[in-house]
Nucleic acid binder design. Structure first.
Lengths: 198, 198
DNA sequence: CCTTGTGAAGTTCTTCACAGCA
DNA sequence: TGCTGTGAAGAACTTCACAAGG
């Protein structure tokens, strides 16, 4: 569904006013029937014979998905990867803002990284209780990932973006998504191998 | 399946010799039945009453998934994100190596980034025909993504790791995986919103 | 005539549950 | 006894196809 919202935003900036399920489906590589089913789940947004009003549907989707507000995030781990995440310009235009950074390395604590002061991981609980966030981003070494995640969950965070290569365990009411390029690559090599006959 | 391989590697380094589908399932957050079904699809690797031999199963999985060899990759786009990808230390231990880097910015061409000389994107076809690779990594601005991907496909690349926020179109016999942290975040906000009642 | 919204049919994926073997 | 491999049952998801409305 966030994919639909993104495609609609692109259509809107192109000046399109109406779109059919077929066109939208082509843009996001999904069948037209699938588009209609997904949208119909949340309401009746379309007009028979015409399609969907781009602007109106985009507004609806943003509201439904919670994309019409700011989300505050905390980052744990300011190593090479963590600093790249802090420097990523793609978050804020979409309403995601990193508001603190933590690291366990004494050499990093107190430093300024991308406009944020790096705090000690020991202060996670203290800072998050003073200044709560919605989402936690974890970019620590694999060994400490589960521990950090447990602590974030205990602080009330219910969504985690996990950049570490570990399958961490969280309660059912906590969501976690993993960003793992190696896993993505490994998911493709099987088919590559099969196709090349190697 | 690559997840199973990773969990097995961890078990192996812990000195475990045997693992049951139940234990492996807990490690990767999958049901024991699912583990058995998945593994049985490729062969009969287990022993009733005991479980799976960690070492042997890991070898089999690596062979099946094509993880027992090196994969050569090309990177297009050496902006902030592309340079972070080049600097990522997680690829090579798993057998993935970036062997060239391209950029369209004249200011970048000829520069050395992470040990690689940056080539002009105009030379993609020439370099890839001299020195073919298995996988393409795309980290260019959204506007040029589809064009770059088309060219990589034309060069015979059949697997693409797409770091851009666009749904690009590729032939059926070409695989593409997308790394898009914002999309992952947007996939969680719906449930966050629902839970908080906002 | 065009396109939605939606039951029905079809397909794929997941769990159940147990025979069979170490 | 313990755990695999696997048919059968069940659940979830996808496509089909069409009535109804602009």
């Amino acid at each position: 569904m966030p994919l639909y919202a993104r495609a609609l935003a692109a259509l809107e900036s192109q000046g399109r006013f109406v779109v059919s399920s077929k066109e939208l489906g082509e843009a996001v590589a999904v069948s037209d029937a699938q588009i209609r089913k997904d949208l119909a789940y949340f309401g009746r947004f379309g007009k028979q014979g015409r399609g969907y009003d781009v602007q109106k549907l985009l507004d609806e989707l943003r509201r439904i998905l919670g994309l019409n507000r700011q989300w505050r995030m905390t980052l744990v781990g300011t190593g090479r990867l963590g600093r790249a995440i802090l420097g990523y310009e793609g978050f804020s235009p979409q309403g995601f803002r990193i508001v603190h950074a933590f690291d366990s390395d004494v050499g990093m604590i107190g430093k300024d990284v991308g406009g944020l002061t790096v705090h000690s991981t020991e202060d996670i609980e203290k800072l998050l209780s003073e200044d709560p966030v919605d989402i936690g981003i974890v970019a620590v070494p694999a060994e400490t990932a589960q521990n950090v995640i447990d602590r974030l969950v205990k602080c009330g965070i219910r969504a985690i973006l996990n950049y570490t290569p570990v399958t961490a365990h969280v309660p059912d009411d906590v969501q976690m998504k993993r960003i793992d390029p190696v896993l993505s690559l490994q998911g493709m090599t099987y088919h590559l191998k099969a196709a090349s006959g190697a």
